[in-house]
Amino acid sequence: MRNIFSYVVFLILFSFSYTIYGHHAFTAEFDANAPINITGKVVKVEWINPHAWVHVEVLKESKATIWMVEGGTPNTLIRNGLTKNSIKPGTVINVRGYQSKGKLCLPRCIANGRDITFPDGSKVFMGSSGTGAPRDGSDPKER
């Protein structure tokens, strides 16, 4: 009985910990039933903590909508040589992710960006592409 109790408690705790991905739980902010796949021009980049935001203008039937796309802390990217100037206004990007639970889009629509892709297919913010691979300081060549 005690083992079952322990297991249940652990499951509860672990399931919560999974949602604590970073500074906050994305599941509290974004709607799993509202996936997005949008393409538009970058109009602004907010390189701020706790999360960076990329503003994208998306045209649909001649109507422009601004989407704010949430990323992670910029500190890691700055350390890897990327800055807000690495994504210049006017750059066309594709963003895939999920819209926020609040969908009023006032003043802007909000989404998280699971990944961001340029028209030529290259991806930005991809750890596996070498632009931001996590480092741990153990390799002297990294210093």
Partner: peptide
Amino acid sequence: VGGYNTAWMDFG
């Protein structure tokens, strides 16, 4: 809904 991809992370 996940989070952001791993470039934003630095877990070693």
